[in-house]
Amino acid sequence: MEGSIAPPNGIIGTATLPAGLRGDYAHALEDGTLPAEAIRRTEADHATWRTLVARQRALFPGRAADAWLKGLDRLRCDYAVPDLDQASDILEDAAGWRLVPCPGLLPDGQFFDLLARRRFPVTSWIRRPDELDYVVEPDIFHDFLGHVPLLTDPAYARFLEAYGRLGQKAAARGLLTPLARFYWFMVEFGLIEQADDGSGSAAPGLRAYGAGIMSSRAELLHAVDGDPARLRFDAFRVMRSEYRIDDLQPAYFVIRDYAELFEAIATAPALLDVANAATPIPPGGSHPQDEPWRT
């Protein structure tokens, strides 16, 4: 899965993190974040960032969702590893969010608590030059370039806060499996309908916004230009859908707009128990009630 993330226990953190993670967990504060003084950047870090951004930028026309691309442009982050305080000022003005540095993967409690407070955790370190195409743990390129641009969109930002609040409740009830699936498909690998702009996209009217797609060359080309299964978004279907972390996605879900995600989270509490008890749908599997997305 080129450039995307494959944490050992899924996309959401775990109650106890596995040993051997790469980040500077020794300096993490009680809420999982890092003090600003613990972060140092080198010119090599900035060079790696510029290379990664330039490679992805070349692929965005005709493939990146408008709101995501406008957010990226607004952040002005092409030429150096972003300063999180400066980016936070932009996000706070746009939608009331701020960024906080962290060592990497966070336990569930810390992760959900930060989202519920409109604080998005961003991994502090960046991959090495020999890891441009693949990194196992999420780094700042994935976290910032993939996730942060859409935090300038009020509708999406409102959804992610609501997701954090639901996560707090789901964790207490032992219902994180269906919620982890929702995060995987709709936050990391989501697609959105968009009016065709005549750009010549391989899939007119379809654009990508998920962080795992936007930070990966292979996933972006596969999701938009390739021929995977693309299904109309249905929250219950998503919560039953298993996923793989070691390959390109065989199926994606397509939303109409970001408000649809917020509406789904508002109704999700009633679905969690049922989805958790339902027979899972294997990766790339089909269901009789599936509604294919068509342009």
Rank of each mutant, 00 (worst) to 15 (best):
N276M: 03
L191A: 08
G10W: 11
L248C: 07
I140R: 00
I140L: 00
R50A: 15
G10C: 14
T42F: 11
T123A: 03
K169D: 14
I12K: 00
K169N: 11
L34G: 01
W184M: 12
S201T: 11
P82S: 12
P61A: 00
Y209I: 05
T16W: 09
D45T: 05
S199T: 11
A155D: 15
A235R: 07
L206T: 05
G10H: 13
W49I: 05
P101I: 01
A218M: 03
L175D: 03
Q86R: 13
R40G: 01
P283A: 09
R22I: 11
R230N: 08
R173Q: 12
L145A: 01
R22H: 03
E131R: 10
Q56G: 06
L271N: 00
A171Y: 12
P269V: 13
G62Y: 06
L17Y: 05
R50P: 13
M239I: 14
I90K: 08
S88V: 08
R217G: 00
H287G: 14
L151E: 06
R207T: 02
D93K: 14
G109W: 00
I281Y: 06
D196L: 05
L99Q: 07
A172L: 10
S215F: 01
P288D: 04
A47I: 01
S286A: 13
G164C: 10
S199L: 15
S201Q: 09
L191N: 09
I245Y: 03
S88W: 10
F159G: 05
L271G: 00
K70C: 13
A87R: 01
G190T: 02
I281F: 05
H27T: 14
W293K: 06
S286T: 15
W125D: 01
A157T: 04
V81P: 07
E260Q: 05
P149Q: 06
G164S: 13
L99T: 02
P35M: 11
Q110E: 02
G190N: 11
T123Q: 00
T42D: 12
G212C: 02
P288R: 04
R127I: 02
L220E: 07
E188A: 12
A47N: 06
A38R: 10
G167Q: 10
V100A: 10
